[in-house]
Design a binder for these strands. Structure first.
Lengths: 334, 334
DNA sequence: CTGTTAGCGCATTCAA
DNA sequence: TTGAATGCGCTAACAG
């Protein structure tokens, strides 16, 4: 059997209360001498605290749950790395799970995690609405990352998406392109919406009226990018350049180009996000780089702050309005 | 405050024991009528079980910890997806964390997770030795994935790495290449070792004696691949083809090719693993595909079996010898 | 079929 | 500075 605090108490010739005090993080009133005796006994027995029992008692697990739409996604995992580093530095543990791009699944996960008494949650929401988050958010600090949901109430750490596509589009305009398409995503997802907005704004500022066929919305996967590029290039007068809403779409577009017979059309793509493979994508000219790890770190700090505020009771008061942190993006030329 | 079992008992006019029985997964002896009353009371109060309290009592958290060297890695995350799906289907929750490629960190993580009473652990070991795993493995089922450690004692789910590089090399040989290099990894990592072995075996079977400079070992990152390709191509009589130990190395090699001035040398690469970007890598001709999600699923099943065996006491007995599952790899041509 | 009782391992009153 | 007692929320004997 695993040793308990009782075993240590017996071995050190003190009470369990004293052991608890001696082994506590924050200095408790214990004579230095007894503390040493307790510690000696503890590691002679290789005692390890039962974290579950402690959690039940102190009503805190020192755990932060992270719920992302999927795991196998470079951007998300960089964010997760950032979060974990920050949490770890503060003594928290990260519990990472996937909502599989389903709001329903997300809701289940969150409920289950709340049952497990996680101290806080960091969520990249699968959908655009946040009703199902509200209930849990009343008891547990919740922080949104990357995407926000409709209506107020949630703190968030996101990128300045509109600025990103605006600058991407401006870069293309500076290069002399005028017929610029936007290959986007579901308008329900905040990032997709904001990025569309930045594109539209840049064109408007340049006095260009986009043709309806230039704006392609819908799914955000590789296949969607492939199909849209196909459709676009089959037009009588196809666009000369395009802005891709994310890496998956971008990749799909490039793959379509790769699959085309005959001479490749000289289209140019400016897309959100980049990866180690970006140098190999022939049409890629500009990318809007989001520092995902940094975003994760900010999120980690933020959720810990919220957890602490809640503990000290300042939570309710200061949370009248939500705080949204917008991180800048960097435009890279290739 | 959150409702407890006591509140439900009071509302339903029964004892807490009855509530516990009525709400239990596995059918307990409760009159259907009282069960209904309890359930009604429970969701009128929107009661949710305190999972921590339950865990303390039943000494099981229904949680499996997964410790990987890093999170931002496509292969690992596909494995994680597979594990999670399987665990989820069986009612388990996955706790994912990173050892940051450090054995020391791995040990800390594992100890911490053991404190949290996880029911089992799935580990991709950061190092080649397993001493630090042994202690925890005596109390908690441990399963290795992708990589194995020295000495016996651990169940594992891995790929048939040797077969993979052997077939990769044979494919290159069939194409007429004779001067084939192996750009590998740390010999301490089992995958790297096994893959080297497959390459060497294929050459030996073909009666070819590799030149010493063809076998490049060491780090397994993009930069390492870059450097090695550079060195190889600076030789007087460089190899015509190469086998890459993994995707990162492969990528580094391609990048070096990309950076070279003048006409590109006509080298061909056969590498382990593939990604959505593989079609864009100019030198890539063959890949050895590992179904990472399937590997994860097998790992998930396996660890759950071990957990159940342990519970039923069969654990110690049947675990005299370890069981290593080797999954086949598929060779793809590009 | 149901209630009573007794802990799981720990932190924290309250006294001493 | 220390110990004894209490209970976090739940389940599992053991009676009835």
């Amino acid at each position: 059997m695993r040793k308990t605090i009782k075993d240590v108490a017996y071995a050190a010739g003190v009470s369990t209360a004293t052991v608890s005090r001696a082994l506590a993080e924050n200095p408790s009133p214990v004579a230095e001498q007894t503390r040493l005796r307790v510690i000696a006994a503890a590691d002679k027995l290789s005692y390890r605290m039962n974290h579950t029992a402690r959690s039940l008692k102190v009503r805190s697990t020192m755990t932060v749950a992270v719920v992302f739409p999927e795991l196998a996604n470079d951007f998300f995992m960089d964010v997760a790395e950032g979060i974990e580093r920050e949490l770890d530095a503060q003594g928290y543990t990260m519990l990472l799970s996937s909502s599989r791009n389903s709001v329903e699944e997300e809701q289940k996960r969150i409920a289950m995690l709340a049952d497990r008494m996680v101290d806080g949650m960091v969520i990249i929401p699968a959908g655009s609405r946040g009703e199902h988050l509200r209930a849990v958010a009343e008891r547990t600090p919740v922080l949104l990352v990357d995407r926000i949901v409709e209506g107020p109430g949630f703190d968030a750490v996101v990128s300045d998406n509109e600025d990103g596509t605006r600058r991407l589009t401006n870069a293309l305009l500076s290069d002399g392109f005028r017929r610029i398409a936007f290959v986007g995503g579901e308008i329900t997802v905040s990032t997709a919406r904001e990025r569309l907005s930045g594109y539209a704004r840049a064109l408007a500022e340049a006095g260009i009226q986009p043709e309806p066929s230039w704006i392609c919305l819908g799914g955000m996967n590789v296949e969607d990018g492939y199909q849209r590029m196909k459709t676009l290039m089959e037009e009588a007068n196809p666009p000369e350049a395009m802005v891709a809403v994310n890496l998956l779409i971008h990749l799909g577009m490039e793959r379509r180009l790769l699959d085309m017979d005959g001479p490749k059309p000289p289209v140019v793509i400016a897309g959100f996000d980049e990866s180690r493979y970006t140098p190999f994508l022939p049409a890629s000219r500009y990318t809007a780089f989001q520092d995902a790890v940094a975003m994760g770190r900010r999120a980690g700090q933020r959720i810990i702050e919220n957890i602490r505020e809640k503990k000290t009771g300042r939570f309710e008061r200061e949370h009248s309005g939500e705080r949204i942190i917008r991180l800048p993006v960097t435009i890279h030329h290739h």
